[in-house]
Amino acid sequence: MDIKAGLLNNDKRAAARLISMMENGEPEAVQIIKECYNMTGHARIIGITGPPGVGKSTVTDKLAKQLRKEGKQVGIVAVDPTSPFTGGAILGDRVRMADLNNDPGVFIRSMGTRGALGGLSKAVHGAVKVLDILGMDYIFIETVGVGQSEIDIVKLADTVIMVMVPGLGDDIQAIKAGIMEIGDIFAVNKSDRDDAERTAAEIEAMLDFNRDEEYRPPVLNIIARDSKGIEKLLELVEKHWEYENRSGSYKKKKLNRVRAEIMDIFRDEVMKTLYSISENTNIINELAQKVMDKQMDPYSAADRLIDEFTNNQRNN
């Protein structure tokens, strides 16, 4: 299969394969993305995050359906945790998006966190680029909002929707530290439950504490199951987008994002090389033994490793 030709021909199978190759860290995939990089930048990227069980998939499903009504092409990247014990995963987000499976204007991809050395962020970045090249107008990234790597992923988005549900109570307290900052819009899902208003008010109160910039994230009560509040939610996404462009915040964010991505890729490469050094040579063990025997201090040992690393790079 000629992946690049397929991708440029809007072949879903080629796109799907390319995403896998990015996920698996295959150098060929990077080469293809390099060659097509000019074609990226069309899609709007929306992050959907929040604690487990708040209905993120349903929110994504309904937003996608609404956008489809408007004739937009929609890509979805849904991330679920990989089991740290077996390396396997059950990726079940499609269950709530079953009607979208058949829609030619939709592309859904499920992804496991796989957990190895920050590769996730690169894989998600890669998938988003592929879907962008494929011509999607909107791309959703859906992921559980716990853990740093997941938060890193949604930082990729132009707009982040934080999904909550009534009665989270202590959970909100526990998670606010990390995630209150990254939400551009707060959606309180399942708002037919008791306490929906109170939860919204609690979030507003926390926003008073945590946010002081010009843009204040709106808080919206929705019932995704019944499609209630979905149109309004999309309006808020558009408003946020307008604000970002008007204020120049988008350009700043985008620059930061690109910086972060370069650093990410760089770190990945460094880690890979370091890994191969420690795998292929005995140097780490030797250094460790020397530090143990007090022949060396750990700082000098690390310096030695950096020398080794630089040599390795030069030889490549």
Binding site: T58, G92, V95, R96, R225, D226
Partner: peptide
Amino acid sequence: FGEYQQSIVL
């Protein structure tokens, strides 16, 4: 009435 959406926990 709409239709029921299954909830999967595996």
